[in-house]
């Protein structure tokens, strides 16, 4: 489904990813771990097409299509979703308006008619229940004044709405309290189908207890330095990263 080959990425002339390769097949869950600043968020941003990051060489394909040629919105409409580590606040744009626009753009991309207002509201209500999202939050502007945990929940809520094929969760667990973590993890699991894939970026074993990965990769200094199964995460939890350097 997702195929990354020898990816080199720079920002402001500084190389951050230095030849990274990763393959994600339909239905798989991959966890990416690694020390702060190793390039995890950079990888996520590059996959979704953040223009600030420059791909200097390598390739990314999604379902056989060259992602690097596509705009961020096309990638989204192809079914890639990123739950941001630091979601931005957009004052003045209401959650409802934002989500309705996003849903309808996706439908347009798939050559479907726009969703009626009542269908949309029903759909939204359903998805809100899934992540236990407070009504108050969806009545506000996008992320504006949301607490750290509320922002993360909002990301998962949006993921539930957009039903992506590949979800990338960048430290969605940080900032969540224990109950919220369970709710979010359950939400992710419920949305999971055999064709859908997930990339989890996390620092903690905790999340992996709820969402069990098929593979665990360690990213260090812009490269994947070790891959393994879920046991690797346990090992990292006790040993840290030093032994891998």
């Amino acid at each position: 489904m997702l195929e990354i080959k020898n990816l080199h990425v720079s920002i402001d002339g500084k190389e951050i990813l230095k030849g990274l390769s990763l393959t994600v097949k339909p239905g798989e869950t991959h966890a990416i771990m690694g020390p702060n600043g190793s390039g995890k968020s950079t990888l996520a941003s590059t996959i979704v097409g953040n223009p600030a990051f420059e791909v200097t060489s390598g390739s990314i394909t999604f379902e056989g299509k060259n992602l690097l040629e596509k705009d961020p919105e096309e990638r989204a409409n192809e079914g890639i979703f990123l739950s941001f580590q630091y979601p931005v606040e957009i004052p003045g744009v209401s959650m409802v308006n934002f989500m309705r626009t996003a849903i309808n753009e996706q439908r347009k991309y798939r050559k479907l008619p726009p969703m009626s207002a009542s269908d949309f509201l029903r759909f939204m209500r359903e998805k809100k229940a899934l992540v236990d999202m407070d009504n108050k939050l969806t009545n506000r502007s996008v992320n504006e004044g949301f607490s750290g945990g509320e922002k993360k929940k909002n990301e998962i809520f949006q993921m539930a709405m957009l039903e992506p094929k590949l979800a990338i969760l960048d430290e969605t667990d940080s900032g969540l309290d224990i109950d919220a973590l369970r709710i979010v993890a359950n939400g992710v699991n419920k949305l999971k189908t055999p064709e859908k894939s997930t990339i989890l970026i996390t620092h903690y074993q905790r999340l992996l207890e709820y969402i069990v990965p098929d593979y665990v990769h360690v990213l260090h200094d812009g490269k994947i330095v070790k891959s393994g199964t879920k046991e690797l995460a346990l090992e990292l939890e006790t040993k840290g990263y030093d032994w891998l350097k």
């Binding site: 961020p72 989204a76 931005v88």
Partner: peptide, 16 residues
């Protein structure tokens, strides 16, 4: 217009 907000919206499939 805020570039970050634009990008965020685009990752949700909203055209530029």
């Amino acid at each position: 217009i805020d570039e970050q907000a634009l990008f965020y919206m685009r990752t949700r499939g909203i055209s530029l």
